[in-house]
Amino acid sequence: MKEYKAQILSNIKVADGYYVLCFKAGKAQVNAAPGQFFNIKVNEGGSPLLRRPFGLHSVSDGGVKILYKIVGNATEMLAGKAPGEYINVLGPLGKGFDLNNAGTKNAVHILAGGGHGIAPLLALAENLRKKRKNVIVLIGGRTKCHIVGEIMFKRIGCRVFVSSDDGSAGYKGRVSGLLDDILAKNENKTKKTAYFIYACGPKPMLRTIAGLGMIYGVPTQVSLEEYLGCGIGICVGCPVETKAGRKLVCKDGPVFEAGDIIWKK
């Protein structure tokens, strides 16, 4: 795989501090699987020096979209990029969501995202909707302002529920609370729905959701976040303990079966 210079097609603010950048993509990038990521060098030279990983957000005609939140220098510089400028892209990298065993027609796929954790879930929702699957999306944020992407998911036919820590939008509490409600209701039904869970967000959220998946016996996949040095498995900076031994988030993941991870407090 070779790195390549990708021209920026658009770079639009979608919420406070959140942007969607679309870059011109080659065949490999357009064929990226949901859950895979691109390791992007924002600028030439030493500032910033390392690439930054961004999950595939959406694929459109000849372009690939990433959704990002301004969290530091690199993302701030990225937000300042105009259409026509170039970024250096390596990817798609990593292992995405496994959709080989996505259940029958009546199965319901629940996508849970916290904060900018929804970034890779849109690509996943698009993929599932193309296969005419039922998709529920749960979006959590600290406040109403931190909830991103609601409309994008609704536009492609997903049912969307939101949660906020302060109750300023939707359910008051965590995204995992929303999920717990859905799964608990299902327990009382005589004819139970077959659910599949896919989650992306901060580690405590993923740990809780992994627990729910286990309690209710629902197949659960999580996309882990870690500081990445290289993104290709050579710096060994992003280890994660699994039942099958030490794995690397960048190369063996970022998506894992939740039950395989050894979750630490």
């Binding site: 020096l49 870690e226 500081y227 040095g229 710096c235 900076g237 280890p239």
Partner: peptide
Amino acid sequence: RTGNPVPRIVETPSGMLNSIGLE
């Protein structure tokens, strides 16, 4: 060797610090 706990990598001006720990 299992190496050191994460975070093991952080960027610094024109460089990076690593603490892999010979995993």
